[in-house]
Simulated assay, not measured.
Amino acid sequence: MKILAVCGFGVGSSMLLKMTAEKAVKELDINAEVENTDLSTAQATPADLYLTSAELKTELVHSVNAPVYSVKKFMDKEEVKQCLMDFRTKSNQND
């Protein structure tokens, strides 16, 4: 599975979100590659799941073909774990 952590410039906050997502993925024993990127690159990069801020979710959701979850606190591992568990539950329902 490929997860993209997305922020406006692909440097600061997306890197924090990537690091948090990597910890959450490990704890949930999910086989995933987590990358961070900027909004315009994310719009052109296929992934299974996108994590971003509420402000960028609106733009991103209309330009990608995978679920987009907004995260309020990029360093909150429990919030990111909840997004991942919700994604996994919905993915399993669609199988």
Results as ranks from 00 to 15, higher is better:
1 M>N: 09
2 K>N: 13
3 I>R: 12
3 I>F: 04
4 L>E: 00
5 A>K: 00
5 A>W: 01
6 V>K: 06
6 V>P: 08
11 V>K: 10
11 V>P: 09
12 G>A: 13
12 G>Q: 08
13 S>Q: 15
13 S>Y: 09
13 S>I: 03
15 M>N: 09
19 M>T: 04
19 M>G: 02
20 T>S: 13
21 A>K: 03
22 E>G: 09
24 A>I: 01
24 A>Y: 10
25 V>K: 06
26 K>G: 01
26 K>W: 02
27 E>S: 10
28 L>F: 08
28 L>G: 10
28 L>Y: 05
29 D>S: 13
33 E>N: 14
34 V>R: 06
35 E>I: 05
35 E>C: 03
36 N>Q: 02
36 N>L: 00
37 T>D: 04
38 D>E: 02
39 L>R: 06
39 L>G: 04
39 L>I: 13
40 S>C: 05
42 A>E: 01
42 A>F: 07
42 A>W: 07
42 A>C: 07
42 A>K: 09
43 Q>H: 03
45 T>Y: 07
45 T>C: 02
45 T>F: 05
45 T>K: 11
47 A>S: 14
48 D>K: 03
48 D>Q: 10
51 L>S: 00
51 L>V: 01
52 T>V: 05
53 S>F: 11
53 S>R: 12
56 L>P: 12
57 K>S: 14
57 K>M: 13
60 L>P: 12
60 L>R: 11
62 H>W: 09
64 V>S: 04
65 N>Q: 15
66 A>V: 04
68 V>D: 12
71 V>R: 11
71 V>F: 11
72 K>V: 10
76 D>V: 08
80 V>W: 08
82 Q>T: 12
82 Q>H: 13
83 C>W: 02
85 M>G: 07
85 M>I: 12
89 T>E: 14
89 T>A: 15
91 S>W: 07
91 S>V: 05
92 N>G: 06
92 N>P: 04
94 N>A: 15
95 D>A: 13
95 D>P: 06
